[in-house]
């Protein structure tokens, strides 16, 4: 039986995540200056924007993993894509809720339907929310992996296209503080933001590896059971959306 590789380096990674996120929190509340317009409320920026960026990049990462599955046919790529989408959805929901709280405090509304950035983000999130039901609706594991991979690629390609479309929009209220030239953030705010972004990237990678290790261990237990006690013993209870 092959040994699990996803658990390797996990404690070190978890420690690095805690240290970086701790540093980001310290920088946010004790170093970054108050925003001239928003005041203390702008502190939400350091959690909301990294969460949204990591979630969107996670969807693209899942699409790359899905391409690898279609190229190789190896189920581990499908599992990686599945877990990446799962993690991205959690981060995406975090970004959505924190953004909504910020909008309520800043604009007086929980949600602004006229705002392309908000609506496009919601569309991407809802699109990926259908990934799990799609998997669950297909019983045959091979077909499930195949269709889910095609979905992940198409939906993943939609993410950068959607981002570009929103960037080209002229009518928006959502502020644009980041661009390829570095944006218009002052130095201490920029440093705090990048530390927070690195912290959330590390958190994503840690949780992704953690879930992969858990799923891999579970699959190994199932395989062992099947080998030792017969085919029926290792069979999962009912239909599963997760790759087997």
């Amino acid at each position: 039986m092959r040994s699990t590789t996803y658990g390797k380096g996990l404690p070190g990674l978890a420690l690095a995540t805690i240290v970086t996120l701790g540093a980001a929190l310290a920088l946010t509340f004790f170093y970054a200056p108050l925003d001239a317009n928003q005041g203390f409320l702008q502190k939400i920026f350091y959690v909301h924007v990294p969460l949204a960026i990591v979630a969107l990049c996670g969807f693209v990462f899942a699409a790359v993993m899905a391409i690898m599955y279609l190229r190789t046919g190896d189920r581990k790529w499908d599992m990686r894509s599945y877990v990446a989408i799962h993690m991205s959805l959690i981060f995406g929901i975090g970004g959505l809720i924190s953004g909504s709280i910020w909008a309520k405090a800043s604009w007086g509304h929980w949600w602004v339907w006229q705002e392309p950035t908000l609506v496009s983000y919601l569309i991407v999130l809802l699109l990926f929310c259908t990934y799990q039901p799609l998997r669950f609706s297909i019983e045959d594991p091979e077909r499930q992996s195949l269709y889910a991979s095609v979905f992940a690629i198409v939906a993943g390609a939609f993410v950068p296209l959607n981002f570009l479309a929103v960037r080209l929009a002229t009518e928006y209220v959502h502020p644009r503080v980041l661009n390829l030239e570095g944006g218009n953030l002052p130095g201490p705010m920029k440093l705090t933001f990048y530390v927070a972004l690195i912290g959330f990237v590390l958190l994503f990678v840690t949780l992704w590896k953690y879930e992969m290790a858990a799923k891999d261990a579970r699959a190994q237990v199932r395989r062992l059971r099947r080998t030792l006690l017969g085919d029926d013993a290792g069979r999962p209870y009912g239909r599963s959306a997760a790759p087997l």
């Binding site: 928003q38 203390f40 409320l41 939400i44 709280i101």
Partner: peptide, 15 residues
Amino acid sequence: ALPLGKAGKYVAAAY
């Protein structure tokens, strides 16, 4: 810019 007392609640809620 909201006063700290009011903004603090929203910031705490988000985190």
